[in-house]
Amino acid sequence: MTDQPALKPERPFFSSGPTAKPPGWSLDKIDTRSMGRSHRSKLGKSRLKYAIDLSRELLGVPDDYLVGIMPGSDTGALECAMWTMLGAGPATVAAWESFGNVWIQDAVKQLKLPDLTVLEADYGEIPDLASIPQDNDVVFTWNGTTSGAKIADTDWLVPGRKGVTINDATSAVFAQEMDWAKLDATTYSWQKVMGSEAAHGMLVLSPKAVERIESYDPAWPLPKLFRLKKGGKLNRDIFEGATINTPSMLATEDYIVSLEWAQSIGGRQAMFERADANAKIVTDWIEATPWLRNMVPDPAQRTNTGVCMVFQGDWYESLSPDDQAAVPKNIASKLEALDVGYDFNGYRDAPPSLRIWCGGSVEQEDIKRLLPWIEWAYAEAQAGRL
């Protein structure tokens, strides 16, 4: 029998999105001067531009790239890139988890791209990205939020390639370095990694992406939220804080708090190091725990953010499929009820699993305290008490 641990995490927030707020976060840290003001006022626009500028600085975005705030979270930003740039030539959409498969469905069923190749892999695997023709536009997810599998490198993208590269980086930025020179449209959301309030996305465009947008008019109609052009040219005001529709200034100020915190601890390099250290704690524990295995077999493809694990062993494998699926769900539910850990059950479409967020806003000590509780809950499940 495993004894119930004595210590609980001080901040039991392990969700993979929205993720944990930065340490020390509180409502009184939010600047309220823009509340109740127009987002087009001098103050409102300056705060939106400040959020853009801080994002650029922290992420090391090249000076000739554009950074803008988009509606609809990462989904809105990524679909805007797809709707405005794809269809000019052959395209490949690569996916190895739930959200990447959404982009496949967009390409197949919504845009109905005539010259489309789909690359898919099971949860925990990465497809053969080197097989993608360099002339093709490509859409891919840098880090599989629901599978824990990330790309190992960008060697499969040749510098100066003809096609545009659209990168869904929502659970990778601020945790993994982006190879900006090989990326043309990169998107992410405020609620992932930085733990900010949701509903807003970021769109980062290279000069090649701008050229594609300005030289190409897609065959399909564009909703207002995807219209990046004005008078046949890219509307650069969008990348100076003049958003397409009304943003939440409260969410904007919350994002700024997270950005300033990251800046105060040493910027993105410090965020990378925190995520790496957190993930190592979890992955080392998985390796030492006989009834668990990492969902991603290849260590080079294992994320340092949403670490996913599945169960194994004689007892677990003797259960029916329904009972197997109940094990991680019951463990997560029990520990949530005890205020030990929130929202770390695996994604609903993924194999039965647990997923612990290890991004930079999570403290090492809280992760260390969570793991013995999972061991205790697993023992309770084996004993029929969970």
Rank of each mutant, 00 (worst) to 15 (best):
N101I: 02
V362G: 00
D153A: 05
L119G: 03
T32E: 15
W373E: 03
W291F: 14
A251I: 01
A242T: 09
A275F: 07
A242N: 13
A209L: 10
Y123Q: 03
W156Y: 13
P290V: 08
A279P: 02
A185Y: 03
T187F: 00
T19W: 01
T92A: 05
Y188G: 01
M178D: 11
D237I: 06
S258L: 03
Q382T: 11
G17Q: 02
L338V: 02
G87T: 02
T186Y: 01
A350H: 04
E363I: 14
A379C: 06
S258K: 07
G44V: 08
I244N: 00
K112V: 10
V118R: 01
K280N: 04
D366C: 07
Q263L: 12
K329G: 06
D155T: 12
F239K: 10
W373F: 10
D64C: 00
M271C: 15
P18Q: 11
S46D: 12
V296T: 15
A242L: 07
E253D: 14
S26T: 13
L205C: 09
P221G: 06
L113H: 01
P133F: 04
K49Y: 11
E317L: 15
V327W: 07
I213G: 01
R11F: 09
Y216Q: 07
I166A: 00
D28H: 13
D322V: 11
T303P: 02
E79A: 02
M178S: 14
E365Q: 14
E363W: 05
T186I: 14
Y316V: 04
L338H: 05
L292S: 03
P9L: 12
K162N: 13
G36S: 03
V210P: 01
I286T: 06
T154E: 12
I69Q: 11
L338G: 05
R161H: 05
A91C: 05
T84V: 14
D155N: 15
N101A: 07
C80Y: 05
S147P: 03
D122E: 14
S131H: 04
L250E: 10
A51W: 07
G231W: 05
L319T: 10
Y123E: 02
Y347N: 08
L371I: 09
F239I: 08
N245P: 00
I151M: 11
K182Y: 03
I356Q: 05
Y347M: 06
K8I: 06
G195F: 03
M309F: 11
I132H: 05
A130C: 02
L129F: 11
E197N: 12
R302T: 07
L59E: 06
Y50T: 14
